[in-house]
């Protein structure tokens, strides 16, 4: 199939960017969206132009590095997949596809489609862990955990930290991301000891990074490639309020 791509080009954080049109030809429907970008970049290199910078790594939907805002939706039109797992059979011949970077104050553009998501790391560093040094642990089966709790914790832990939730939110809120980690650890007995401190520290860091507030539109849940549930946000709110009350 033949397509027209309109891609955001921006040389650096300090310079202004704009959308540039590129025709691409003979795209197979078995290609992934990123393989289509490989084809485009190969064309640009042949012409002596600078290829489009985009983040990607595992290309199997788990590292969370790829991050394209495709036709107004993070990771494109299909639900439950990352950009690298989006295949061209989701498009049709003649389509015009607009590709932009994640847009949020807390995710400044680095170059073209690459943004800086280190704010997420700083949120985790503020409390997204259980303080246990290597060597301290007791036998794993000494902490039985009801399967439903373990399953819920796992579902929350499946977050890949891609930032689609922030990109799609009109407030650029990171509530789904933060709540997934808060929930995972709050659901487990190992995580309860530091629960109060954790939620307060993580929420404070989230605010400090410049993410917006949550107004419960639910767009994050719809666009999350890993199906992280809004229930986590409810659980985090509960954790946050009770943490502040019990102080």
């Amino acid at each position: 199939m033949n397509l027209t791509l309109k891609v955001w080009r921006q040389n650096s954080a300090k310079e202004a960017g704009n959308l540039v049109s590129y025709p691409v030809k003979d795209i197979s429907e078995d290609m992934s969206f990123l393989e289509m970008f490989d084809v485009l970049n190969e064309q640009l290199i042949t012409k002596g132009e600078v290829p489009i910078a985009f983040d990607h790594d595992c290309r199997e939907g788990i590292c969370g590095m790829c991050s394209m805002f495709i036709n107004g939706r993070p990771h494109g039109p299909k639900q439950g997949v990352t950009t690298c797992q989006l295949h061209m059979r989701s498009f049709k011949d003649g389509d015009t596809i607009v590709v932009e970077p994640w847009r949020a104050k807390a995710f400044p553009v680095v170059k073209d489609l690459v943004v800086d998501r280190s704010a997420f790391d700083r949120i985790i560093a503020s409390g997204g862990f259980i303080s246990v040094n290597a060597g301290n642990a007791q036998d794993a089966n000494n902490i039985p955990i009801p399967k439903p709790d373990a399953d819920k914790a796992f579902d929350a832990a499946a977050c890949i930290g891609c930032g689609a939730c922030v990109a799609t939110c009109k407030n650029s809120s990171a509530m789904l991301f933060v709540s997934a980690k808060v929930s995972q650890l709050a659901l487990l007995p190992q995580g309860k000891i530091e629960a109060t401190m954790r939620v307060k520290e993580m929420v404070a860091q989230m605010d400090k990074e410049g993410f917006g507030n949550c107004s419960n539109t639910g767009a994050c849940e719809i666009e999350c490639p890993k199906g992280i549930s809004l229930e986590n946000i409810a659980r985090m709110n509960r954790e946050f309020y009770s943490a502040n009350i019990t102080e």
């Binding site: 862990f129 259980i130 246990v132 290597a134 060597g135 301290n136 642990a137 007791q138 036998d139 794993a140 089966n141 902490i143 039985p144 955990i145 009801p146 399967k147 373990a150 399953d151 914790a153 796992f154 832990a157 995972q184 650890l185 487990l188 190992q190 995580g191």
Partner: peptide, 21 residues
């Protein structure tokens, strides 16, 4: 020891209905 360490960190490994790994 690795399994012990990971469970202590809150890694949600698969469990049976009895709550054990």
């Amino acid at each position: 020891n690795i399994i012990d360490q990971c469970v202590a960190q809150g890694v949600p490994l698969a469990r049976e209905y009895g709550g054990l790994l």
